[in-house]
């Protein structure tokens, strides 16, 4: 009768092993190639050398990671606010959806390479252009996910609630919004992987500090090893954010884990 909630111990850990192994072996092959071929470290530095650069320049990297992270979080917060507000507006006003959706799609066709310098030109070298560019790049997957998620609500649940005398607002809050959560997290996972890259790109185009500036300066002085050191930090940031959303998802959608356990 009662179904316990099974969660195999260490399942997450066991899943991670092949991934770690494949990444590690890629680095080992890279290291072997660089040593065996004698290729110049200006062209292709070995992973060990990149790691050495991270340790050596840790103060520089840390000082420039902070502004990048700040731009990422601020941009993402804006993006989340805009995506959620718009999704609610579109859900309550279907006509607005037909009017505005094409504009959002067009916003996603703009090449970042062209738009980023313009945004910097308009808003200067401060945080504003970075925040705007991060938001521009990340809001769309979340908006689409939310709007589709609302529509995926079980019609029988909505009928039931209307028969109970629920208002449109109550139906949204109790049924449509929670129904959209699995979709929202799918969109969030896509968005979050764009966020750091967008912030770095915005810095690259014009900023006072940030990982993008580190990369720009290192490239201009032919320091491939330092470029890659900053790249490693950027990847780690994205991985950490991705892991954070996965944890949040597991908490918010904990009722689904129960269902899976049947």
């Amino acid at each position: 009768m009662q179904r316990p909630v099974p969660r195999p111990p260490g399942r997450g850990l066991a899943h991670g092993v092949p991934a770690v192994l494949s990444v590690a072996s890629a680095f080992v092959l890279w290291e072997i190639y660089v040593r065996a071929s004698g290729i110049s470290p200006l062209v292709l530095p070995a992973p060990s050398r990149v790691l050495g650069q991270i340790v050596e320049n840790r103060a520089l990297l840390w000082d420039n990671t902070v502004p990048t992270l700040r731009a990422t979080f601020a941009g993402f917060a804006l993006s989340l606010t805009v995506a959620f507000s718009l999704s609610v507006a579109l859900d309550f006003m279907p006509r607005l959806r037909r009017t505005l959706f094409p504009i959002f799609v067009v916003s996603q066709t703009l090449p970042l390479v062209a738009i980023a310098p313009l945004v910097v030109l308009w808003f200067g070298f401060d945080m504003t252009p970075k925040i705007l560019l991060v938001a521009l790049v990340t809001f769309f997957p979340m908006l689409v996910a939310l709007v589709d998620g609302y529509d995926a609500t079980d019609p029988e649940i909505e009928n039931l609630m209307r028969a109970m005398g629920a208002s449109r607002m109550q139906v949204f809050r109790v049924a449509r919004f929670p129904s959209a959560m699995p979709y929202f997290f799918a969109g969030l996972r896509i968005s979050i992987t764009y966020a750091v890259v967008a912030a770095i790109f915005a810095e690259y185009v014009g900023a006072r500090a940030g990982l993008g500036i580190v990369i720009l300066n290192a490239k201009n002085s032919f320091r491939s090893d330092l470029v890659l050191a900053a790249v490693v930090i950027s990847s780690l940031l994205t991985l950490a954010l991705f892991a954070g959303t996965a944890l949040l998802q597991r908490y918010v959608l904990r009722w689904r884990d129960v269902e899976d356990g049947r």
Partner: peptide, 25 residues
């Protein structure tokens, strides 16, 4: 009204499903 399929909200615990109609009121 009781629909043919139970239409329980899968993300709510049973107690919170049972109070749904009262909550709407």
């Amino acid at each position: 009204f009781m629909p043919q399929r139970d239409a329980l909200l899968p993300w709510r615990r049973i107690i919170d499903n049972l109070t749904l109609g009262l909550e709407v009121q």
